[in-house]
């Protein structure tokens, strides 16, 4: 019982962290709140499915293409729409939210709603850890999630590009004087964020079927985990993912699965009411109204 909670909680947490990484990265780097993550997530899933099932490409190629394509879609969304409403938070949120819903509902309209839409596991088979059976796909999820979280933290804190992008998030004018072109950098951050969301999609989706409602869930989960973690903080993101992931598993075990979302949403509302800048957020603290 205890071991199963431990293992399933970890899987759950990493899934949450993975889903949130793209949104969190984009916001942390360029302050663009990309509410289209849900749509991008499913776009990647369906793209991979089409490459694999319809075009018959090898699985690895299909996945790679899906990730690249989603990144490009993110860049297009930025170049066509966001660049015109840059800095108007309300417009950014509404525009990306609408794009996300439009992507999801287009798929629904086109009939992508049956059980045949699924991606195979990367490797078949399972393993027993601490008496709990866990399949390889979930291990891959954990591996990819942890790797990306560490890699991102490294990228934003120790590489020149990452630091430069973060500079823009802090102060656009200063970054400009240092020769960092903010529009280009922001486009890049949206594209990378979208590609990361695609990575999450192709790794996580083999665990179940690809359904439209997953897209809406991902939107809520991704934003909630990022906001809870404090938006620009990778460490905060991981902590928030762990808290929510384990909270879900504990709830499902002791209260019943129907309470999972209640506990989850209540946690978000409560944390933000108590700590408006999230668990580890520092961005807003200085200007926070007291």
């Amino acid at each position: 019982m205890f071991a199963s909670i431990l293992v399933n909680g970890l899987v759950n947490s990493v899934i949450l962290i993975l889903t949130a990484l793209g949104f969190s990265l984009t916001f942390g780097l360029s302050r663009v709140a990309n509410f289209a993550v849900g749509g991008l997530y499913l776009f990647a899933g369906f793209a991979a499915w089409i490459f694999l099932r319809i075009l018959g490409l090898p699985y690895a190629v299909a996945i790679l293409l899906a990730i690249i394509l989603t990144g490009i879609l993110g860049a297009i969304i930025y170049q066509v729409l966001l660049v015109r409403v840059r800095g108007i938070e309300l417009s950014e949120v509404i525009a990306t939210f609408a794009v996300g819903v439009a992507i999801l509902e287009t798929f629904r309209w086109a009939g992508f709603v049956t059980y045949e839409f699924n991606l195979p596991s990367f490797f078949k088979g399972r393993l027993e850890i601490l008496g709990t059976v866990i399949d390889y796909q979930r291990l891959i999820v954990i591996g990819v999630g942890l790797f990306l979280a560490v890699a991102l933290w490294w990228f934003t804190h120790h590489t020149k590009i990452g630091l430069g992008l973060r500079g823009i998030a802090q102060d656009e004018h200063t970054a400009l004087t240092l020769g960092i072109e903010s529009d280009w950098a922001a486009m890049l951050s949206v594209a990378i964020g979208s590609a990361l969301t695609a990575v999450a999609a192709v790794v996580i989706l083999p665990l179940g079927i690809i359904s439209i409602n997953v897209g809406y869930e991902v939107l809520l989960l991704a934003i909630a985990v990022s906001v809870l973690g404090g938006l620009e903080s990778t460490v905060g993101l991981v902590i928030a993912g762990l808290i929510l992931g384990y909270a879900q598993v504990l709830t499902a075990n002791f209260l019943g699965p129907q309470w999972m979302l209640v506990v989850y949403l209540a946690a978000i509302v409560t944390v933000l009411a108590v700590r408006p800048s999230g668990l580890l957020g520092r961005f807003k603290e200085i200007e926070e109204r007291v």
Partner: peptide, 18 residues
């Protein structure tokens, strides 16, 4: 009500579902 921007938007997005 202390929250602004996307933080408030997120809360209002979650509440009906909650």
């Amino acid at each position: 009500l202390r929250l602004r921007g996307i933080y408030f938007a997120l809360i209002t997005l979650s509440l009906p579902q909650l």
